[in-house]
Design a protein around this nucleic acid. Structure first.
Lengths: 156, 156
DNA sequence: CGCTTGCCTGGAGTGCACTCGAGGTCCGTA
DNA sequence: TACGGACCTCGAGTGCACTCCAGGCAAGCG
């Protein structure tokens, strides 16, 4: 299986409103660079090269550019996307749902309303999760207080 | 089987955890009862009977009482424990860690300091998770705002 | 008395999200 | 020209947390 070289050399642009950089997200990313090898990306975003390839295979990545020998060359745009994916993963969103979102992005601008809806639903989900966590926190605090009494008996 | 069909499991508040000893507590669960069959518990706490047996098998449940024919009879104390387990599960705590906590509880009062420590660590974890979620929320809000512009013009 | 229902056990199966291995290509340096 | 290293693909393997199944027992009912 030879890799067909440079069949798609420009990623379809303007499908995804470029976002991630706008929020001042702290991210050590080499500046002035726009072509990263897979291992560079792996160390930047904390995923393994295997996982990055797997993400691409399942359609969670837009088409990543390739070098003339078929090696992946990730762009800053790709890193932005991976940042978003990482955030969504933290919310517990299933990979399949993110693939769905990625498909919408690839499909073009006319899917924006749908994407909007999906993000809103996700936000609801995150809010619910935060609420759950707060509840758990209350329980945790309660129990910790109780156990504090069992701890080093500082009360004379 | 006389169990209400409403299995929406987020119903009860249950902000009344117990440490090593729990007495009968006023709860939205069937009162005046202290021996539940596995299917009753399943519908009360939203877990499947399979999962409840599995929890017991892996040591996540204290030893559940049995009827003279060998069927499980869960107590209110068991339900309290399951409430806690459910809360901890929501935090993403691995089952193995909860098993560890359960072992400490079984081991007796002298493990209280260790349990305290474990709970404090868990709380740290939850706080971190909440922070992550807040960050994700910020990104989500940002993107939702952007997409809102693409959406159906609601006002103008 | 047999049927149905609920529960029991041990073990196998499922779905998800990776994770790894084998075997191969390409490239820069010695 | 040989070699080490980074990368490639495809496919199999792993770990977790359930989830289900087969085969069987006990109780209540008609």
């Amino acid at each position: 299986m030879t890799v067909t070289e440079t069949d798609t050399e420009t990623a379809d642009e303007a499908a995804e409103p470029d976002v991630c950089a706008a929020r001042g997200l702290p991210r050590p990313r080499p500046e002035g660079q726009d072509r990263y090898t897979i291992s560079e990306v792996a160390s930047i975003c904390g995923l393994s090269a295997h996982t990055l390839r797997w993400y691409e295979r399942i359609g969670l990545m837009p088409h990543v550019d390739r070098s003339h020998t078929g090696q992946r060359r990730f762009s800053n745009r790709d890193l932005d996307w991976l940042d978003l994916v990482a955030k969504l993963r933290l919310t517990g969103m299933p990979v399949a749902d993110m693939v769905r979102y990625a498909e919408l992005v690839r499909a073009g601008d006319h899917t924006c309303p749908e994407r909007h809806e999906l993000l809103v639903e996700t936000r609801e989900d995150v809010l619910r999760r935060v609420a759950e966590l707060q509840e758990t926190l209350a329980v945790l605090n309660y129990k910790i207080d109780i156990y504090a009494a069992y701890k080093v008996p500082e009360t004379a």
